[in-house]
Nucleic acid binder design. Structure first.
Length: 642
RNA sequence: GCCGCGGUAGCUCAGUGGUAGAGCGCACCCUUGGUAAGGGUGAGGUCGGGAGUUCAAUCCUCCCCCGCGGCACCA
């Protein structure tokens, strides 16, 4: 018998039945056989040493491909598990998948691991690689497998097989020589030697068994693994680079803000940080006004009774900052702006002619977030949302949503953020409302996205419990994704708080509410902006736009004139008259990420010119002061005013 | 909230069972220098907080607080 394999380049060749992918690779070239880690037959994974059972579309997966890396990392996880079990007898294995940059493995062990153990574990892993143990795949029957894992004390594995694998489905176990084996779907390398040594253990963390807080806490060891040493080094270098853009670090270095322990999750905005904030806020106000929004402001603290009516007291209480007065009232800081906006909507009568009513607020909210979730500006307890609620009729939902998508897209672009995709969060398992409602609501969101020329990616089950939503996924300069901007449909709150408008028919109707934000929170968005540009803000956003630096004190008088002229032209300017060398001043302001340094010395003073030096460049642009003013003010104009 | 790691000068970090150091920054002095660090001098610390062991604790033990990395959470 022979089988026919169809290769990606279109070639088709026949082989003897039972040939292994490794043998096929060897038949093609020696170097290919060296690089190959697994195969795919009609898209399904196949181990290199497992005899092929049928022909079809055939692909050899090499270690430097994305698929190949996945195989390597999976093997790295197994080698890690073997090393750990050999070094720490009594440790149980649970689950060890591949991640974006590497892998992890969750272990159950009474004593804690320490990062000090990493060296020892890595050493043993390398010994296992050197031993080049053959990796053997065996197929088990469910009951037998459960018994086997129970008998060797691996209760977690037994539980997975028992609960996750359907009766009759084959169970595969991969063994490293006769020393070690693990339940696994595969595929795996033919032997441990093929893994190579471009791996490193990275960090240690707690994790819950099957991701559930009520379950036992396991110890997770994270690692990274690559096709070769060079790739590993590049990766470690990328991590260092990412660390340099950490907004917490830059925030301190650039004197933008700070946080301290008496106010966990709360931000002290310094002058420069607040300048950034105000620039963004002013820009947003202009954009919202042009887009037909009205701006309001609602109380910071409201009576418990109010939150009971809105439903928050019931559902959101653990996250609310609640306080009591000497007179015995119970109040709460607002965790959200929506109920407040409904009050403004309800004040007086609304007609269908008032709809859609787009009500915006830079709403300062407080939420008691779990201590372990706090993270710089990204996750805080006091934050300001660029919030708005659009009150409209049901037949206006699609148009309003489409308009919002266009507005948000344009704003994100103005901030230099690139969109990856828009996600449509559909009905979650636990939800309010009948299926017909969800069918309609999801349809409306989808239609709206398409009306705005966007095909959303479906995020099944990610909707709010009362309605579907669209989330904007942005991608920053180093490829990380952030959710900025969301629009959620809400039929529940208007009903609960009895919002009404008078329709064309003279009868009272319930409006629909669209909750929406474009930046999310100002705090978080500023954090993202900082990391996106590594602190080097575009001129219009930069807290300090120009530093006028003198060469010698001869130029002090002229430097003052230059700075004054720039300020008059609306630029944010600092003056550096210190008795230091220019080189020193250049270095210091460059490290502060000042976009433009205007150097003035005797020559400039005589000619009434300035020498501009841009951040990141070494060239000097010598030009008359008037010309510099014209160029810089033009460049510093916010994008919506250009 | 849970697990692991950490907390020493304004910042970044070294260090020791006998109460402490560097670089940068800061102050003062000298230097007026043409595009990424000119030189000198000096000030600055409850070694996160509390308790314990010890003749003696920044160091060892325990508790707490905070930070960092994950997990869980994030209508």
């Amino acid at each position: 018998m022979s089988i026919s394999l169809k290769f990606p380049d279109g070639a088709e060749r026949s082989y003897d039945d039972g040939v292994t992918p490794l043998a096929v690779a060897e038949g093609i070239s020696k170097s290919l056989a060296k690089k190959v880690v697994a195969a795919k037959i009609d898209g399904a994974w196949w181990d290199l040493t497992r005899p092929l059972e049928r022909g079809g579309k055939f692909e050899l997966v090499t270690r430097d491909s994305a698929d190949g890396l996945e195989v390597l990392r999976h093997d790295a996880a197994h080698v890690l598990a073997q090393a750990v079990q050999e070094l720490f007898p009594g440790t149980q294995v649970t689950f060890g998948p591949v991640t974006e940059d590497g892998f992890y493995y969750d272990f159950a062990r009474d004593e804690p691991f320490s990062t000090d153990d990493f060296e020892k574990i890595e050493k043993r892993m390398k010994e296992i690689v050197d031993a080049d143990l053959p990796i053997v795949r065996t197929v088990w029957e469910k009951e037998k497998a459960i018994q086997h894992f129970k008998s060797i004390g691996e209760i977690y594995k037994a539980e997975i097989i028992d609960e996750v694998i359907k009766p009759g489905d084959p169970i595969t176990v991969y063994s490293h020589g006769d020393k070690w084996g693990d339940l696994c779907r595969g595929p795996h390398l033919p032997s441990t030697g093929r893994l190579g040594k471009a791996f490193k253990l990275m960090k240690l963390a707690g994790a819950y068994w099957r991701g559930d807080q009520n379950n036992q806490q396991l110890q997770r060891i994270y690692g990274t693994a690559w096709a070769d040493e060079k790739q590993l080094e590049d990766y470690l270098h990328r991590l260092e680079e990412a660390e340099k853009r950490d907004h917490r670090k830059l925030g301190r270095q650039m004197d933008l803000f700070h946080m301290q322990e008496e106010g966990r999750g709360m931000v002290f905005w310094h002058e420069k940080g607040l300048t950034l904030w105000r620039t963004i806020e002013a820009y947003m106000r202009r954009r919202l006004e042009k887009a037909g929004y009205v701006e309001v402001r609602t109380p910071q603290v409201l009576d418990r009774v109010f939150w009971e009516k809105s439903g928050h007291w019931d559902k959101y209480r653990p996250n609310m900052f609640v306080c009591e007065t000497v007179e015995g009232e119970t109040l709460s800081l607002k965790p959200m702006n929506c109920p407040g906006h409904v009050q403004i909507f309800k004040f007086g009568q609304k007609s269908y002619r008032d709809l859609p009513l787009r009500m915006a607020e830079f709403g300062a909210c407080h939420r008691y977030e779990p201590s372990g979730s706090l993270h710089g500006l990204m996750r805080v307890r006091a934050f300001t949302q660029d919030d708005a609620h659009i009150f409209c009729r049901e037949d206006q939902i699609v148009e309003e949503t489409a308009r919002f998508i266009e507005l948000a897209t344009s704003i994100h672009e103005d901030f230099g953020m690139v969109r990856d995709h828009i996600a449509l969060g559909t009905r979650p398992d636990v939800r309010a409302g009948a299926d017909e409602f969800w069918d309609r609501a999801e349809r409306q969101m989808l239609d709206a996205a398409r009306a705005a020329g966007v095909e959303p990616v479906i995020a099944a089950g990610d909707g709010a419990f009362y309605a579907p939503k669209l989330d904007f996924q942005l991608k920053d300069a180093i490829g990380r994704q952030w959710t900025c901007g969301t629009i959620q449909l809400d039929y529940v709150l208007p009903d609960r708080l009895e919002a009404e408008y008078v329709g064309e028919d003279g009868a009272k109707h319930r409006p629909v509410m669209l909750h929406r934000a474009i930046l999310g929170s100002l705090e978080r968005f500023i954090g993202i902006l900082i990391e996106n540009c590594a602190g080097a803000f575009p001129l219009w956003l930069s807290p300090v736009q120009v530093v006028v630096a003198t060469i010698t004190s001869d130029a002090d008088g002229y430097a003052n004139e230059v700075a004054a002229a720039m300020r008059k032209a609306g630029l944010r300017v600092e003056l550096d008259l210190r008795n230091e060398k220019v080189g020193y001043k250049i270095r210091e302001h460059s490290l502060q990420k000042t976009p433009v340094i205007a150097v003035v010395g005797k020559k400039e003073a005589e000619q009434r010119t300035v020498a501009l030096r841009r951040l990141g460049g070494e060239a000097q642009q010598l030009m008359p002061l008037d010309e510099a003013l014209a160029i810089l003010t033009k460049e510093a104009t916010p994008p919506d005013l250009r």
